[in-house]
């Protein structure tokens, strides 16, 4: 089982302490999907939690990818999301297929799946809150909220959505869940120049979230060009060191920079430089 999660990343991927926020950043060509899948895997597969705390549940909100993509990649790790959905341990909020596409007919919505159809921020957060409530009814359970590419709302929202509103919405959702994993794009062209409203809003949101995050795992391509056996670099930056090491008995959080390689079969190798 431990082979599915790279051993060097194990301390970071295990279920985070309560109320923590983990930020994953990606760039074009170095996507964070494999890391998201492994967060979900370790949350749903790890059975070491004391029974009185109940099951860990995952609510995945994805604005760029559909459920089929996540299912296919989870299956490679031996995780059956359909089965987990019927057990009420996994739920999916689809922010892709209905957000800007006019609804046509009524597609059958399966258990544990919700399709967002109104791009308005309050409507979206209401839908997500509703999904969280549905899953926290039985009390003793911890919900891990995973939001994939929340920054899309900022980009497509135009003048109506500002960075502050995104952060407020995120804060509202964090109140109701155990911990949150968030992925954002951190391409230099989105962050560095800040000339257009799109860029400055994105930079503001990204920096705001980065400062509140407990730790950040940022993915990027190799600085020195491409290599056959390296897909990219993952840099782990720990925010508020004390709070997170207190609550975590196991591995100590360290700032690290590691290389990773993703094989054709979806397997991931993580190694230090020079190994």
């Amino acid at each position: 089982m431990s082979t599915r999660i790279p051993s060097l990343l194990e301390p970071y991927l295990s279920l985070p302490p309560e109320a923590s926020l983990i930020l994953l950043t990606s760039v074009l060509g170095a996507s964070s999907n494999w890391l998201v899948i492994r967060f979900i895997y370790s949350a749903l597969q790890g059975q070491d939690a004391p029974p009185e705390q109940g099951d860990t549940k995952v609510l995945l909100v994805s604005f760029m990818r559909d459920l089929n993509f996540w299912k296919e990649n989870a299956r490679r790790l031996g995780l059956d999301l359909d089965k987990l959905a019927t057990k009420k341990r996994f739920a999916f909020v689809d922010g892709l297929s209905g957000l800007y596409l006019p609804a046509q007919g009524s597609a059958p919505v399966r258990a544990g799946q919700k399709v967002l159809s109104d791009p308005d921020l309050t409507a979206i957060s209401k839908e997500i809150q509703h999904a969280i409530e549905m899953y926290s009814q039985d009390g003793a359970s911890r919900i891990l909220l995973v939001i994939d590419q929340l920054d899309l709302l900022l980009a497509t929202g135009g003048d109506r959505v500002s960075a502050v509103e995104i952060e407020e919405m995120l804060m509202g959702m964090r109140e109701h869940v155990h911990a949150t994993v968030l992925t954002l794009s951190a391409d230099s062209s989105l962050v560095s120049s800040q000339q257009t409203p799109l860029e400055s809003n994105h930079a503001a949101a990204l920096l705001g979230v980065a400062h509140t995050a407990d730790f950040i795992m940022s993915l990027r391509l190799l600085d020195s060009g491409t290599a056959r056996d390296v897909s990219g670099v993952v840099r782990i930056t720990v925010g508020n060191q004390e709070s997170i090491t207190d609550q975590r008995a196991g591995g100590k959080m360290e700032q690290k920079e590691l290389l990773y390689f993703i094989g054709g079969d979806g397997g991931v190798k993580v190694f230090e430089r020079g190994q």
């Binding site: 060509g29 996507s31 494999w34 390296v230 897909s231 990219g232």
Partner: peptide
């Protein structure tokens, strides 16, 4: 290829 994370497609020519 890149949606999965990149790597493993030697014939891709990515970066060449």
């Amino acid at each position: 290829f890149h949606e999965k994370g990149g790597g493993g497609g030697e014939s891709s020519g990515f970066g060449d």
